[in-house]
Amino acid sequence: MLGQKNLKQFFNPTALLVAGLLVGCTSAAVETTENPAELYQNGEFLRAAEIWERQAKAGNPSAQFNLSTVYQSGRGVDRDLVISRKWLKEAASNNYAPALHNFALIEIEKNQFKNALNLLKKAAEQEFTASLYTLGKFYQEGIIGETKPELAVYYVRKAAKSGLDKAQYNLGKMYRDGFGVEQDNEQSFFWFLKAAEQGSRKAQVKVAHRYAKGLGVKKDNVQALAWIYLTEKADVKSLSLLKTKVLKTLTDAEIDLAKTVSMSLEKRKSN
């Protein structure tokens, strides 16, 4: 039982302040140990969204953006495009590149091309790879006005150099077709190979064909077969004809070598 004296001590302002600070410290500790990005990666979408919501309200642009994505896709929360747009706009007004990017895409869907272009350019100025690529693709396909091959190559190349596999694959095609650049099979192969090494299935198919043909690279059927084996593991079946053709040219030892090369390519990709 708490006596009168004990009660007074219990409600002592200093004690309350200390207790409050302790509680505050504890909740701050909880806050810092719970990483919303980690929770999200673990599939704990609701808990991630709750933390992002607190951070978003405190003005954190990356939390505002992430919150907009969970409301857009309905992860951890019921899908709500109005709330999603609200947080997306907020993050974009804070010049957060991923938000500028997604906001631009919404503007394009509404045919607001000028605004979309400005938003993408703002994100690209921050060297944001996804926007560099999208901007390049849009100039390539004329989604925003006319096709502008040189500008398309400029932005796609920047994204490719940043390591984006789909940009590398696309740049390979630009060199192959001479789109915005001088046609160059070696450069084309170089970028297909870069994308293939990162796991791009389409690029792996191209690399296998290129080795078999010797186009842009020295003809090498062992390498061609190694890339064919790699794509087969991902259920790609479009190379079965090429495989039959290549197998006919190789000895058993060379086929074994191709299997070893394929395994090493796979290991390299997963490391």
Partner: peptide
């Protein structure tokens, strides 16, 4: 096709 391509460029939550 353009619309679907645009939607495919949307970014998910960033770590």
């Amino acid at each position: 096709l353009k619309l679907l391509r645009i939607r495919a460029e949307r970014l998910p939550a960033q770590s």
